[in-house]
């Protein structure tokens, strides 16, 4: 309605444009959602119904939780989930702390090699850490860290730092200098000033947190190479192995896919506004 009010007398051409725009968006939204919805609804059906009527919602006759029973008896997803939480949580905390400290130093202090160090820390944005896997594996073997969560935490912290330092430095440069000078006159130490600045860049920290968290949670490569033991499997590696073993048990496959997806989708729907705002802000920079 506002569209018509703003652009009076546009007539049929305008309305055709409105309809076409929304038709394309709706069609692509359906393409984006269809596979996910199909998996979720079929995970609650009996095997016969999965193949007989894949597009119907489960009803009293076709409803079945047999897939979920197989998943819970066949794999320790509670343990995998905890591993993923620990790895993602600790790496994320380390990235946010270390990157904000480094960004504060790069943004605030003039010292020789400042620009060069900034450039050095930014190289990792473009060169994927995976290419160093052979040496990372040898190092972890030498340190006795294979099949520990520490190996993943160290690698993911290193992986998250370059982009985090880059984004946070840009934001910290915008914090007005007067504020810091006033604090210095009041006798605040340099460490106190860092803690004073942190809350001011909270939106940027949120953006960085999202950028850092999603690839860590979703990664398959490093858990596969560094920590594939039963005790240290992450959710994604656990799902990958479980799905490979139960590939012909459609109920179990659909149930495990749903279990692995739904927590992420729920979190995403809750935080999508902040996430997308963060991503678009980061892009404007």
């Amino acid at each position: 309605m506002t569209a018509r009010a703003r652009l009076p007398g546009k007539g049929w051409g305008h309305w055709a444009q409105v309809v076409a725009t929304h038709a394309v968006l709706l069609a692509y939204a359906a393409v984006a959602l269809f596979p996910v919805v199909l998996v979720v609804i079929n995970s609650f059906k009996s095997r016969r119904a999965i193949f007989g009527s894949p597009y119907d919602l489960p009803n009293a006759e076709t409803f079945s939780l047999v897939g979920y029973q197989t998943v819970f008896s066949g794999a320790r997803f509670d343990l995998y989930f905890l591993n993923s939480l620990i790895v993602t949580g600790v790496s994320l905390a380390a990235v946010l702390l270390f990157a904000s400290m480094a960004a504060h130093a790069l943004a605030e202090y003039r010292f020789r090699g400042n620009a060069l160090l900034g450039l050095y820390l930014a190289v990792g944005i473009m060169i994927p850490i995976r290419l160093g896997t052979v040496s990372i594996l040898r190092m972890m073997v030498a340190l006795g860290l294979t099949d520990t969560l520490w190996s993943l935490i160290l690698v993911y912290t290193a992986q998250g730092l370059p982009l985090a330092v880059f984004i946070l430095t840009a934001f910290m440069r915008q914090v007005p200098g007067d504020l810091k000078d006033a604090a210095r006159i009041d006798g605040a130490s340099e460490y106190r000033i860092y803690r004073l600045i942190l809350p001011l860049v909270r939106p940027a920290l949120g953006t960085v947190a999202v950028f850092t968290m999603i690839p860590i949670w979703n990664d398959l490569w490093f858990p596969l190479v560094l920590a594939s033991g039963e005790r240290t499997k992450t959710v994604i590696l656990g799902a990958q192995i479980f799905l490979g073993q139960y590939v012909n048990d459609w109920n179990a496959v659909l149930a495990s896919l749903t279990l692995a997806m739904v927590p992420i989708i729920v979190l995403y729907v809750i935080f999508s506004r902040q996430l997308i705002r963060g991503l678009t802000q980061g892009a404007v920079k």
Binding site: A105, G132, S135
Partner: peptide, 23 residues
């Protein structure tokens, strides 16, 4: 300044740059 820069630089160098060059 050293304290602020050290943790990020050390972890990044040890687990990203060094492995890339060593590889």
């Amino acid at each position: 300044v050293v304290v602020f820069l050290a943790p990020a630089t050390i972890v990044y160098t040890a687990f990203m740059i060094f492995p890339l060059l060593d590889s």
